[in-house]
Nucleic acid binder design. Structure first.
Length: 750
RNA sequence: GGGAGGUUAGCUCAGUCGGUAGAGCGCCUGCUUUACACGCAGGAAGUCAUCGGUUCGAGUCCGGUACCUCCCACCA
């Protein structure tokens, strides 16, 4: 414990913020082991930031809210475990490393080869990992860094393998040939969630398909003329009189030498377009299904590189899909088969990562059968095992869970967890039992000639296990038994499906217990006028720059006080400046108080309540009310309410009210020292409690001042959180002082 | 096409159980009052989107309308 001391006149957060962080981290205060033995655990797993990324405002908000909860609960005596980690970010990392490689050496990943490329990825990721963790520290996040996880490390790899092999042997992981979302730029399949549907205005072309028997034609309408080269039928509605005569006949497929049948299918909407639809089973999900119903062949005319294949015909093979479209339209025009076009708005799927237009293609991939998992998850959330804050998100979650589709978990990338599946020359699949080693022979035919699947898992296939894997699952570690399930998850709504819903599935499926008791879903951080941040608008705010300019305390407070009921959070210098002003206010109030307190005996903390006057009783009553309000607000995860209550109490009541009222008292030479000592004790107590109350929100300035005041800045993170004192409730004193203050205002007006 | 949310001061947002509307920023007027000009003391400013209903009383509860936002969605 340091001796109480003076504070410098200038409030300079940079002078002490990181000093306190390092001191507390090194003292092990952020580890659950710092709590008294037997303390009830309080566990939060950090949503792991991508190793490719830099801490952005969204992270700053999430980490701030988590830290407020963790610091508060820690001060309440809970064994707080806040687990930090970093995500290996499959596609994102591979993209960055590939780009770097190309810029540096002009080589592609294929040029350097898989092993070499993975080594480069590993080195790059290792170099970046520390940065992002330090950025989390800069915000003051009181994580237990001794337990830091990485989604691609040994324990996490074990968990991924265990999960997949378990699901496989339960019949819930399977390999199937289906129509998938293919990104030709990333050269991988994507899950449905990774597709951005964007409405786009395009054209709907009408094309005539002549009847094979000679006279007549059927005009089909399409938005993708280039795929006609892969048509294997034309479909019309069974009840459509216009086309009834053609059903069962064949048409000549223009630009090819093929003839294709006309089939009747209720899927066709007679009112749309021409009422006749070309069927291209290899390039359209609906047509793929229709082909199954009618036993039609698949003709693949677009390849995984988004170029036309040999099957597209001599004139088209090798063309890019866009060039192919132009050529097809030109050639149809020449053949006299174009029948006009009209504008049409259609939803188009784009790659979430690189915005490339996705191609629906048929390919063989690994899937997780999500139905049974979703059912268990929903049963748990319905039973209240996990509560959503705000509650309305449960509806969105329920809705998604009800309509859930199987999850495509394989990716044609190199960077990620390898898929533990082996194939023999005959195509038999061998997946080891959970916990078993790599197979040495085919499980079906005994062949020793096995090749491991060359794909890796979707990054989310490691993330969805987080609450389990970070505490050692599937091993029954001491951490697992103590810290699973976790207490709270704080996250933005944009990963509700990607991450939150899937974690609930993995927890309930593999362990039986939901992975967290509460999910706190916050909004998006926007700029100070409420606009979405974007590079193009140039309104992106770097939280770390803001920490340097205003102090991390101010950044945190600004975020907390704006984060209302799960809604978007306006943020910017106009929001941070008032928060810094508040920190400065606290600083200066403390400087004043120190001056008063140090004139008398330093240990002036014993309050003789019965002997106190009205003003002292008033501020104690208000302090108690503030404590009650802050505590209740935190219990309801109303960070904005808690911060506002603190701000209003400290500024309006303590500084503008109490301090101004006691000033003349301290300066009155006629007043006996014993009288002053009573008020000094109250001043001391109010300030001490205020700083403790403030600590979860502004950990640094609160420590710096507590250290000056009581010499215990090093222990503040584990100092008891203030509790409301019912004995201080004094409505009469409150009313008297409030009447007095109102009267003062009236007099000043005169 | 389905679903969710929003509309309160110039701006960004609070508003608990229905009882005479609040904050921050901005604006105006005074203040170098020895903690603080990142401050102090005051002030102006709202038809609570709109229509109807319930009620002694509605920003708050119920129904409709308008506009805005977002999410989900394989129909050409």
């Amino acid at each position: 414990m340091n001796a109480p001391h003076e504070l410098p006149k200038n409030f300079d957060p940079a002078a002490f913020e990181m000093k306190w962080y390092r001191l507390h981290e090194e003292a092990g205060l952020f580890r659950p082991e710092a709590a008294p033995p037997g303390a009830e655990p309080y566990v939060i797993v950090i949503p792991p930031p991508n190793v490719t990324g830099k801490l952005h405002v969204g992270h700053a908000l999430g980490r701030t809210l988590e830290d407020i909860l963790c610091r508060w609960r820690r001060m309440e005596g809970r064994a707080v475990l806040w687990l930090p980690g970093v995500d290996h970010a499959g596609i994102a990392t591979q993209m960055v490393v590939e780009r770097n490689l190309a810029e540096r050496t002009g080589q592609s990943r294929h040029d350097v080869g898989r092993e070499q490329f993975l080594e480069i990825c590993r080195e790059w990721a290792a170099a970046r990992r520390g940065d992002i963790l330090n950025q989390i520290r800069r915000l003051g996040s009181s994580c237990d860094f001794s337990r830091t996880y990485y989604t691609l490390d040994e324990p996490r790899s074990k968990a991924v393998r265990h999960a997949f092999t378990t699901l496989y042997h339960q019949g819930l992981a399977y390999r199937a040939e289906r129509m998938v979302n293919w990104c030709a730029r990333c050269a991988t399949v994507l899950s449905d969630l990774e597709v951005n549907h964007v409405e786009q205005s395009g054209l709907l072309w009408s094309i005539a398909y002549p009847l094979a028997e000679g006279s007549g034609e059927i005009v089909v309408a399409t938005t993708r003329p280039e795929t006609m080269l892969g048509d294997t039928a034309v479909a019309v509605h069974p009840e459509d009189d216009r086309y009834r005569h053609a059903v069962g006949k064949t048409v000549r497929l223009p630009l090819t030498d093929r003839t294709i049948p006309v089939v009747a299918d209720p899927l066709v909407d007679p009112k749309f377009g021409t009422g006749a639809v070309k069927i291209t089973p290899a390039h359209d999900p609906n047509d793929f299904d229709a082909a199954r119903r009618h036993g039609l062949a698949l003709v693949t005319v677009i390849g995984f590189d988004a170029k036309m294949t040999a099957a597209a015909g001599a004139g088209y093979a090798g063309l890019d899909r866009a060039e192919a479209r132009r050529k097809v339209l030109r050639d149809l025009e020449t053949a006299g088969l174009r029948r006009g076009e009209k504008t049409h708005v259609l939803p188009i799927g784009r790659c979430q990562r690189c915005d490339t237009v996705l191609e629906p293609l048929v390919s063989l991939q690994w899937y997780v059968k999500t139905g049974p998992l979703a059912e268990k998850a929903v049963a748990a959330t319905d039973a209240g095992e996990t509560r959503f804050v705000p509650e309305l998100w449960k509806k969105t979650y329920d809705e998604w869970m009800r309509n859930i589709r199987d999850w495509c978990v394989s990716r044609q990338l190199w960077w990620g967890h390898p898929i533990p599946a082996w194939y023999c020359a005959d195509g038999h699949v061998t997946v080891p039992a959970p916990g078993a080693d790599d197979p040495s022979a085919c499980g079906s035919c005994g062949s020793k000639n096995l090749t491991q699947d060359g794909d890796v898992f979707d990054t989310w296939f490691s993330s969805w296990l987080m609450p389990l894997s970070v505490v050692g699952w599937p091993e029954k570690t001491p951490d697992f038994s103590r810290f699973y399930p976790t207490t709270v998850l704080v996250t933005a709504f944009d990963i509700l499906f990607f991450w939150v819903a899937r974690m609930i599935m993995s927890g309930t499926w593999f362990d039986g217990r939901a992975p967290f008791a509460v999910v706190v879903i916050h909004g998006l951080v926007r700029d100070e006028s409420g606009l979405k941040m974007s590079k193009t608008k140039g309104n992106v705010i770097d939280p770390l720059e803001m920490c340097d300019a205003f102090g991390a305390d101010a950044v945190r407070f600004a975020l907390a006080i704006q984060s209302g009921t799960g809604r978007d959070v306006p943020f910017g210098t106009s929001r941070i400046a008032p928060a810094r002003a508040f920190a400065t206010k606290v600083w200066n109030a403390a400087r004043f108080a120190l001056g008063m307190l140090h004139e008398g005996e330093p240990e002036a903390s014993t309050i003789d309540y019965a002997a106190l006057g009205t003003v002292d009783r008033w501020i104690l009553a208000r302090l108690s009310a503030a404590i009650a309000k802050v505590t209740a607000s935190l219990e309801n995860t109303r960070f904005d309410e808690a911060a506002s209550a603190l701000y209003a109490f400290f500024w309006s009541e303590f500084c503008d009210g109490y301090v101004e009222m006691v000033k003349p008292l301290f300066r009155d030479p006629g007043l006996p020292e014993a009288e002053k000592a009573k008020t000094r004790a109250v001043l001391h107590r109010v300030l001490l409690d205020s700083l403790a109350l403030l600590h979860p929100f502004m950990p640094f300035v609160s420590c710096e001042i507590r250290d000056a005041l009581a010499g215990d800045g090093d222990r503040l993170p584990v100092t008891r959180f203030p509790r409301a004192e019912p004995a201080w409730d004094d409505p009469l004193a409150v009313q008297t002082v409030e009447t007095l203050r109102a009267a003062a205002t009236r007099i000043r007006n005169l």
